Simulated scan of single mutants.
Amino acid sequence: MQFSLIICTYQRPKALLNLLNSIQDQKMYPNEIIIVDGSRDNKTKDLVQEYKFENLYYFKVEDKDRGLTRQRNYGISKVTQDSEVVCFLDDDTYLKKDYFKNLIEVFKRNQEIFGVGGVAINENRWIKKDYEKSYSNKKYFEFENYVVERGSRHILRNHLGLGSNKLPGNMPEFSHGTSYSYPLNGKFYEVDLLIGMSMSFRKQVTDSIKFSTYFEGYGLYEDADYSLRAIEFGKNVIATNVCLRHFHEATGRPNKYNYGKMVVRNGWYVWRIKYPKPKLEARLKWNVIIWLLIFIRLGNVITTKKKKGAFTEALGRIVGWFSLFLNKPKVER
């Protein structure tokens, strides 16, 4: 099964080299690796020229194609017609040796699956359930003989009756779901949402739909938008044996104020992709949770060392919420 890999990068040559080294050690190697570089310097270009990686094709883009969604669309336009699967990886990830082998096997086993996401093992907090212990439903989430401790935000939401009754990766009508992924048990689970750090689609999907240019620049939640629209072709799944590490490289990220605005505005956009006309109760819950998260970030001004970041992000969220009354995003399906 021929497959292509697209890696969009911006000012992260060291992180990219780390990823490429992990790809070189794979049990199954991509038929082509397409690097789409939006960097404003030549450090990434120099790196690619210095280290010779098999089947690698490098493209440096200018302003009109710069930004995550535009770079992904540019990469899609360069994929060979013979490819059957198109993979996307963030440039700050590192793959286990059987990543592609296990990924392609998922596509081979089930023709109804059109999108596959992997799991970041360094962020996975699931543990085997100890049957001699009792686990509070408010504090823990239990699933298939595993448990994961809920974050403080989810605990508070549960106490207030604002928790999601959907499995991880699936969006409730009020949008705010859970982000626990799934236990590393080798199974795969059907979901609505795939995460951009590790997602792959059959080429029928990438030939038919492109990443929305609404998500300019950093492109927060562009992966959610794309995976929701991809469901019209078939199932999306999280495969728990498709494993990597995700390091969240700080370079190239937006400031906290802009990030806060994007969380609200882009979150609203993705919500309306899945639920164009949510019920009144769902609308109320969405807004209440937005403000709950704003107050939590304001509280972080006192409880964390990164006080300025917490305050400016909260301010961005507030501005983003009020901006929805004046200028709602135009949702494109």
Score class of each variant (00 low, 15 high):
residue 278 P to F: 09
residue 92 D to K: 11
residue 271 W to G: 09
residue 310 A to G: 02
residue 135 Y to L: 11
residue 144 E to L: 08
residue 100 F to M: 07
residue 108 K to F: 03
residue 288 V to W: 04
residue 198 S to E: 01
residue 322 F to V: 03
residue 247 F to H: 12
residue 333 R to V: 13
residue 39 S to C: 00
residue 253 R to K: 14
residue 242 V to H: 04
residue 280 L to V: 14
residue 235 K to W: 03
residue 95 L to P: 09
residue 7 I to W: 07
residue 189 Y to I: 01
residue 119 V to H: 05
residue 169 G to R: 01
residue 40 R to I: 13
residue 272 R to Q: 12
residue 167 L to H: 09
residue 40 R to A: 03
residue 69 T to N: 15
residue 219 G to N: 13
residue 301 V to G: 08
residue 122 N to P: 01
residue 185 N to F: 02
residue 60 K to N: 14
residue 171 M to F: 03
residue 321 W to G: 05
residue 314 A to K: 04
residue 211 F to P: 09
residue 41 D to L: 02
residue 16 L to D: 05
residue 224 A to I: 01
residue 10 Y to R: 11
residue 223 D to I: 11
residue 82 D to T: 07
residue 115 G to N: 05
residue 22 S to R: 01
residue 99 Y to D: 10
residue 232 E to G: 01
residue 211 F to D: 13
residue 160 L to E: 15
residue 263 V to P: 09
residue 161 G to A: 11
residue 293 L to P: 06
residue 209 I to M: 02
residue 80 T to C: 14
residue 184 L to T: 09
residue 285 K to P: 11
residue 84 E to N: 15
residue 98 D to F: 11
residue 197 M to F: 14
residue 123 E to L: 15
residue 195 I to A: 02
residue 193 L to C: 08
residue 203 K to N: 11
residue 1 M to Y: 10
residue 138 K to V: 13
residue 126 W to R: 02
residue 282 A to K: 07
residue 87 C to W: 05
residue 241 N to H: 12
residue 110 N to P: 08
residue 88 F to S: 07
residue 115 G to V: 02
residue 159 H to R: 04
residue 64 K to Y: 12
residue 303 T to F: 11
residue 93 T to N: 10
residue 191 V to G: 00
residue 263 V to H: 07
residue 298 L to V: 12
residue 313 E to R: 15
residue 275 Y to P: 10
residue 144 E to S: 10
residue 173 E to P: 13
residue 77 S to M: 06
residue 310 A to V: 04
residue 42 N to Q: 00
residue 144 E to M: 03
residue 109 R to W: 03
residue 82 D to W: 03
residue 196 G to D: 07
residue 106 V to G: 05
residue 147 V to Q: 09
residue 256 K to Y: 13
residue 302 I to E: 04
residue 273 I to H: 00
residue 114 F to E: 05
residue 268 W to H: 13
residue 132 E to S: 14
residue 200 S to H: 11
residue 164 S to K: 11
residue 321 W to M: 04
residue 251 T to C: 05
residue 43 K to G: 07
residue 324 L to P: 09
residue 262 M to L: 10
residue 31 N to M: 11
residue 69 T to K: 00
residue 16 L to N: 06
residue 201 F to I: 05
residue 284 L to H: 05
residue 53 F to R: 01
residue 282 A to G: 09
residue 71 Q to V: 06
residue 204 Q to H: 00
residue 243 C to Q: 13
residue 86 V to E: 02
residue 86 V to T: 15
residue 154 H to P: 01
residue 206 T to I: 07
residue 1 M to Q: 10
residue 325 F to N: 14
residue 91 D to S: 15
residue 13 P to I: 08
residue 11 Q to N: 15
residue 199 M to K: 08
residue 119 V to R: 08
residue 29 Y to H: 12
